[in-house]
Design a protein around this nucleic acid. Structure first.
Length: 519
RNA sequence: GGCGCAUUCGUCUAGCGGCCCAGGACGCUGCCCUCUCAAGGCAGAGAUCACGGGUUCGAAUCCCGUAUGCGCUACCA
């Protein structure tokens, strides 16, 4: 494995975990339960999971719910359900527990308080008694002067006596990090060759502990990642600007930072914006209802920003785990492309065994008509053996499971099909010749001893020759009569599955419809 | 405004100084197969490697600048 060996190798570390794949990686996905997670979020989670699995490490799920105002009930369950559906197993998390729990931040308050105190004691943080009103006023003034809006560090200059007095008065306060006033902070991102250097003077004394006693992301994730022994932090690139702040806090606490990998955004299909709830993103679980397969989603997501080589396209989960390497994660944003996802989905549907196909598609057939299922006139539950044979005929034509009902309805309908008479007449045929062809075909099939596709085809092709037609002419008329559609799986296999009785009845109904039309 | 990240076919990408007048995949076009539609096979169109300067015998690959896009700029994450 290639290593990023250059002068930017971080300070001393016992192991060489700053290289991409040597060593066991403990990774985490740390969403905040403020809404649904979409492909973009799960793509980052997938990379983390893949890295953990590739190195034989652990994958942790941690819920960052410190913004209690924005927490949405049910969001955690949905996030976890998404992981289950995708088949990304979690080693430590709210449901699994683990040696470094709890894995929900609101249950770890005392920890953050303790480290906030430690930072204050060390002079790396300070209490800020400023009111929201003052802060806003300061920002507005700065903006008016065309200055970057930053906290003016008013409370950083408070004397011990002043602080004691305000504390005594019971004034509420936040805790802010005391960013070094000079120097630079270097952020190392393993995905990017160059160090990212920030002037400390450009940094803000961000709030670490809110006045309600909950930590902000900046404090909480650092405490957690360190205590949970996380080795690699994969997160969205929007975190790069605050990364120097995090480095400063790690240093203040005397902790070795983990390896950072800021992964590129996934962009919405339309416009150049980041995929988000507002721009083109669907909740992941929505894809389940739309008939997508987890394997397809995983394969598709893996290739958004990561690649294996110059030709591999479809990779199984096992191959993904074996091949995944941070070295091959790119840095340019990738656009969400539904056509490509659809292709992957069709591919994975085609790979399904008959049993697996039935297992996955049956729920789509059986759900209510209003939900996209088969017409309500079709009795549920479906005969599984019959449904499986039907599904097999349409398998290579489906791009999503949700397409199954529309494609297979004619296999299940018991009522008489409605025909577009004109459709029963193939190209370069007249109503008379079409009618004659159908009648002869009906008679030929009626005389068949066994209802078997190969036999039907042999006899019917003889008939085609005898009538001086082209196969497409007779078979098109028959297809419309038997299926009610101009597009269907191969005619003879379709009739075989449909059965003698139904096939013959529809043929006759088609003949009747055409006869009525021809007058 | 400030700070930061990014920039190869429409899209996802390969490429880490000569193998590239740039390879693969999706999509698109045509042909083959063929009872329709798919699937499959084959072929093709499609990228002045954002632009401009360098460095080098040689640059998509290294350096600098410009442009454009995106992100951050909350007691949200």
């Amino acid at each position: 494995m290639s290593q990023r060996s250059d002068s930017s190798t971080p300070p001393t570390r016992a192991s060489d975990s700053h290289t991409t794949t040597s060593g066991v990686a403990r990774t985490r996905f740390a969403p905040s339960p403020t809404g649904f997670q979409h492909i973009g979020g799960y793509r980052t989670a997938l990379f983390s999971w893949l890295l953990a699995r590739h190195t034989g490490g652990q994958f942790i799920l941690r819920i960052e719910d410190t913004d209690t105002e924005r927490t949405v009930p049910g969001a955690v369950d949905a996030i976890i359900e998404g992981f289950k559906w995708l088949g990304l197993d979690i080693d430590e998390g709210p449901e699994e527990g683990g040696a470094y729990g709890p894995y929900v931040q609101t249950q770890r308050r005392d920890l953050y308080l303790r480290y906030a105190d430690e930072l204050i004691a060390g002079g790396h943080a300070y209490r800020c008694f400023c009111t929201p009103e003052r802060l806003q006023r300061v920002r507005e003034e700065q903006r008016a002067r065309n200055e970057p809006p930053r906290y003016d560090r008013h409370c950083r200059r408070l004397t011990p006596a002043e602080i004691a007095q305000r504390l005594n008065e019971g004034q509420s306060y936040t805790v802010r990090v005391a960013v070094p006033l000079t120097g630079k902070t270097v952020v190392k991102d393993i995905l990017r060759p160059a160090e990212i250097v920030f002037e400390n003077t450009s940094l803000d004394d961000r709030v670490l502990l809110k006045s309600n006693g909950y930590p902000t992301y900046h404090l909480a994730h650092i405490v957690d990642d360190h205590l949970m022994r996380v080795t690699h932090v994969l997160r969205a690139e929007e975190w790069i600007p605050s990364a120097p702040l995090h480095i400063i806090i790690y240093q203040a606490l005397g902790w070795e930072p983990p390896v950072f990998a800021h992964v590129p955004d996934v962009l919405a299909a339309q416009g150049g914006k980041k995929l988000s709830k507002r721009f083109g993103a669907l909740p992941l679980l929505e894809y389940r209802d739309l008939g997508y397969l987890p394997d397809a989603i995983v394969n598709y997501m893996a290739l958004l920003g990561w690649s294996y080589d110059d030709k591999s396209n479809t990779l199984s989960r096992e191959q993904l785990i074996a091949a995944f390497d941070l070295d091959r994660v790119g840095v340019a944003p990738a656009r969400y492309d539904e056509e490509r996802l659809l292709w992957f989905n069709g591919y994975y549907i085609r790979q399904l065994s008959p049993d697996a196909l039935a297992e996955r598609a049956l729920p789509f057939l059986e759900r209510a008509e209003a939900q996209g299922g088969l017409p309500d006139s079709v009795a549920r539950p479906l005969d599984r053996a019959y449904a499986t044979r039907v599904l097999l005929l349409e398998q290579e034509r489906m791009r999503t499971l949700a397409e199954a009902p529309g494609m297979t309805a004619f296999f299940f309908l018991t009522e008489t099909l409605t025909y577009e008479p004109q459709a029963l007449i193939a190209k370069h045929m007249t109503a008379e010749s079409a009618l004659n062809g159908l009648r002869r075909a009906s008679a030929t099939l009626a005389a068949l001893p066994a209802w078997e596709a190969a036999e039907m085809e042999a006899r019917l092709r003889e008939l085609v020759t005898e009538l001086g037609l082209k196969p497409v002419q007779l078979f098109t008329s028959m297809r419309v009569a038997v299926t009610g559609r101009t597009v269907s799986p191969p005619l003879f296999e379709t009739m075989e599955v449909l059965g003698r009785e139904t096939s013959m009845r529809r043929l006759d109904e088609g003949i009747a419809a055409l006869a009525a039309h021809a007058g």
